[in-house]
Simulated assay, not measured.
Amino acid sequence: MEHTWPEHLAVGAVRFARPTANYEAITAFYGDDLGLPVLASFRGHAGYDGVVFGLPGTPVQMEITQHGTRPSIPAPDPENQLVLYLRGTGARDAAVRRLEERGHRPVAAANPYWTDHGAVLFEDPDGWVVVLAPWVFGQEPAPAAGA
């Protein structure tokens, strides 16, 4: 399955950003516990602190920020997810083991699709869901339901 970007949209990288009210816990969860690489971090930039994680490498990035007073964060919803498509069940199991060794426990999926296809879900310290799926979307099909 190959897709191309429209000619008028010459995107070289993508970053999505979100604020947090739990900066230290969130950066520890994604950096130390999950093990995402830190591409950049900053403190006191126009009142902002932030960290940029690579997902994977540098073309896709997640930025977490905090600014001034505690931000008003939308309530987490089980459908707001960071989905990490991992290279097989061994990779999924290693990521799950790492998170569990650091005190995190899987959570139930609101959408049964994920567990039906072998994914394991965790909540970050803000209550947002991280899905660890054991296949690479676009490169291979999802495992059969119940597999």
Rank of each mutant, 00 (worst) to 15 (best):
Q139R: 15
A46G: 05
V38H: 10
Y85N: 15
D32L: 04
F42N: 13
V14Y: 14
D124M: 06
H3N: 11
A21W: 02
G50P: 01
G35R: 06
L34G: 02
H45N: 13
Y113R: 11
G103I: 00
G88P: 02
Q139L: 14
S72A: 15
A28Y: 02
G127S: 11
Y113H: 15
L84R: 09
V83M: 14
L39N: 08
G50N: 07
V38D: 11
H104R: 15
V131F: 07
G103T: 00
M62V: 06
P112Q: 12
N80L: 12
V52T: 11
V51P: 00
P125W: 02
Y48R: 12
G146S: 08
E100L: 05
W5T: 10
G146T: 03
R97V: 01
Y23C: 05
A119D: 03
D126W: 04
V38I: 15
V96G: 10
V96K: 11
E63K: 06
N22D: 12
P6C: 07
T65E: 07
V129C: 09
R92S: 03
L84T: 06
Y48F: 15
P143I: 01
A147E: 12
T115A: 13
R15I: 05
D116E: 15
G103M: 06
Q66L: 10
H67S: 12
E79K: 12
V60W: 12
G146N: 08
P74A: 15
R98I: 02
A40R: 14
P71C: 09
A28D: 07
A94L: 06
R18S: 11
A25E: 13
E100N: 10
H104E: 01
V11D: 11
D93K: 06
R87N: 15
G127W: 01
L99G: 06
W5S: 14
L132N: 04
S41I: 04
V60H: 14
L55I: 08
T27E: 09
D32T: 05
A109Y: 01
L82S: 08
P74D: 12
M1D: 13
T4D: 15
T58L: 09
P141V: 04
P125K: 04
P78L: 05
L86S: 03
H117I: 00
G146F: 02
F53D: 00
D32Y: 02
Y85K: 03
Y85P: 01
A94N: 05
T65D: 09
T69V: 12
G35K: 07
S72V: 08
P141W: 02
A25K: 09
P74L: 11
G50W: 00
I64S: 01
